[in-house]
Design a protein around this nucleic acid. Structure first.
Lengths: 253, 253
DNA sequence: CCCGCTTGAGGTGTATACAAGCCAAGCTTG
DNA sequence: CAAGCTTGGCTTGTATACACCTCAAGCGGG
């Protein structure tokens, strides 16, 4: 029998963690339908661990926001409305704006600024080097890295926690919607713009311009907004969005 | 034997919920020292339930932010720095600002606006009626109610979730630091000011002035900021702050 | 005298047995 | 024929047994 845990079969991890990773993957990949109850015993079969770790994983994924409690007991896969998806992006942008503001107001060490700048240099490389096609997976990785660095620049563990929480919703994370552009002719155009915002926010932080840094990051998140709109309009784009299976789409004329 | 669960002994609640409530209370009241390990078996004794619900409660309280995971396993009571406390308040203010903005931009029904206005009328009553001493517990309740209504006005379950999460840190919730003013001569002054901000934000929402509504709520949270400063300067005030036992104080000259 | 090993107590991680609850299908009865 | 009751399967909630891990104290050897 092949179990989903095989794909996450690191023996060094605890059963609970393995169950959590496998179950999250299962939900995100659409292996379970939104609204559907997640039976513990079925997960025992599919994940190959006993009920206890499965239960732990269920609770944690509920706190993460991927599941919701059923009043009579147990959990169901959460279904997100399109509106909720947009809202999550905007909340993320707001918190990232706060992070940028704090970084600017509190000041950051030159070495950390340099780290961030080097990360942006690497992104420039990706955008400029290959004239034919952009290495999107590399862009996504570097983009995630830059956002992570930015979160750290604020120097607030509390804020990082909140950001992690909102980014746990798959379509809300900073890099979630980048791939949507891959099928677009203006792809390079959009990425170049996003990268310019990266540069600007870093410059604002360096100059201690808190308000400006905040405003830029908020606007930056709006790119994801636009990408989500595009994806919702075209099912083919939608397939590129992680966790898109959780978004219950409205009927479109 | 008297157990902590006796104080939360509603038979209709599940053992897990009872354990969660009792354990949260225990942590907030300072029954456990910050940094200290929370032994499952000890909690079994103190709460009067078996290990399974205790474990569930521990996981949930970790997600809530009151506990943190120990690398080798298990959980410890989280210790907050003064800085983290301030940060949590500011994050709350930022999210409440977003809520106010959304309420203004999206518009809210007249009936809900009326509900909020009536709540404010009730607060006015508390502030104006008794000339000698203000009924603080009633003020706290109404204040919490107004903030709750405000969160709902945004019409976003996602945002409410995030707000609940940051308000789970006891000293960060909207009403946590009100009582600090009770020992201050300027108490009425501060409460009057806060109430004026309530009025202003509601007016801004009604007029669809999003930016202004947001700015007011951010500034509103700064009152809590000032109260926390006051409490940190005077241990007697500090005792009035819920969860103050979790804040590890810096040495003050 | 100091360093390293052994050992044991206490802790968590995991599996599983049992009890209680919910829901739907089917039967009974008016 | 319809409405209500009963019953059975499947679900979760809870308790507990067991195995492994960690950490520290004490002992033995260099």
């Amino acid at each position: 029998m092949t179990t989903a845990a095989d794909s996450t079969g690191d023996r060094s991890l605890s059963q609970t963690v393995r169950a959590q990773l496998a179950l999250r993957e299962l939900v995100l990949q659409g292996g379970l339908n939104p609204g559907e109850r997640v039976s513990e015993l079925q997960m025992v079969e599919r994940l190959g661990v006993s009920r206890t770790p499965v239960r732990m994983a269920l609770v944690r994924l509920q706190e993460e926001g991927l599941l919701e409690a059923i009043p009579s007991g147990g959990f169901a896969v959460k279904a997100f409305s399109e509106r909720e998806a947009f809202e999550a992006i905007e909340i993320r942008g707001t918190l990232e704006g706060l992070a940028a503001r704090w970084a600017a107001e509190r000041g950051v060490s030159p070495s950390r600024l340099r780290d961030a700048a080097e990360c942006l240099d690497a992104i420039d490389d990706v955008l400029l080097r290959n004239a034919v096609e952009i290495d999107l997976s590399r862009y996504v990785a570097l983009n995630a890295q830059f956002h992570g660095l930015l979160h750290e620049l604020a120097g607030s563990q509390t804020l990082v926690r909140q950001l992690e929480r909102v980014s746990a919703l798959p379509f809300a994370s900073p890099s979630a919607l980048v791939t949507v552009q891959s099928r677009s002719p203006e792809s390079r155009h959009i990425l170049t713009m996003a990268q310019d915002q990266h540069r600007c926010v870093l410059a604002a932080i360096e100059r201690r311009e808190g308000s400006r840094a905040e405003a830029i990051m908020r606007e930056h998140a709006r790119i994801a907004h636009r990408n989500l709109e595009r994806a919702l309009a075209d099912q083919r784009d939608m397939d590129l969005v992680p966790g898109s299976a959780l978004i219950k789409r409205r009927i479109r004329a």
